[in-house]
Design a protein around this nucleic acid. Sequence first.
DNA 1: ACCCCGCACGGAGTTACATCA
DNA 2: GATGATGTAACTCCGTGCGGG
Length: 331
Amino acid sequence: MTDAGRELVLGLGVGGAGSAGREERGRRDLEVAAAAMRCGSSPEPSMRLALLPMAPTLGFPWPSENRHLEASTRGFDVNRAPSCGASAWGAYSAAGADDEQEDAGAAGAAVSSSPNDSGGSFPMDFSAHGERGPSDAAQGGGSRGSDEDDGGSARKKLRLSKEQAAFLEESFKEHSTLNPRQKVALAKQLNLRPRQVEVWFQNRRARTKLKQTEVDCEYLKRCCETLTEENRRLQKELAELRALKTVHPFYMNLPATTLSMCPSCERVASTSAPAANSSAAASAATPNAGGSIAAATAAPPERRPSSFAALFSSARGFPMAAQPETQAPSS
DNA sequence: ACCCCGCACGGAGTTACATCA
DNA sequence: GATGATGTAACTCCGTGCGGG
């Protein structure tokens, strides 16, 4: 998602050309998609869901204050045999990363496979794990591996505990993507397999995008309604002008400068109307000249943007452009 | 410098399972 | 208890970027 903010908040060394590129690509895709959904030139701030708070408000304990969570994560294990040494989490030291010895497959591969991994930028206070599930070492490295090494059925649905989900959620608020090291660290802390963490983040990103898409759809729907209303109004206005012409045909013979244009046309009556405008008005005034919709949509294209801009310029309310009632020229 | 290959990753779509009404 | 709806973990496929040969 769009997050300069997130980048700031993150500051996790997710940086590096590689992952930055990848993240950028992901963001770009999302934003392009979202932008495509949004009303084009609208300067209005997009209706973004606050799905990724810029700043953690729940005190997600990345640095050191996660000890209370450590306690809470200690019996997490609903899916696997509990790891016994959970209490021995040591500070996750980037430089050290000594705890990665066991996960040579995981962290080692992660580190080597991730040119972007800025080495231990993951600020979580991971305690050195005592020991891990037997499958972890094997699983960790093969981040794309399936669960077959779980010993059980290949596709046993495992429900994450509330604590695990909450922790992952908080982590996701911090950064919606993980580098391999972060993934492994999170997996350790939650006593999950790195693959599970990876899948959870993938699914979570998908859900976020889905929700954002729904919001964008709602926004577009409202844009459409507004435009429909605007169209109705313009047609009515046109009909009134035609009627006016029928009743007072001499108006059409007056110099353009003396014509009082409809205020919603955003035209200054004193300026001489361009020929195009006059011709447009004339053509519109012509009986059966292209029908009402054609006439209405035949407005000079260069004027549409301002109209649209006015249409969508105010926030959230999608108010119509200021539209004083069409005043029939008196006298 | 260019191309090819393997690898890792993420997104999109789908499947399978757990939960709930 | 059976059933359909819903949520979501896990999977597959595909595209992309990167590093190495």
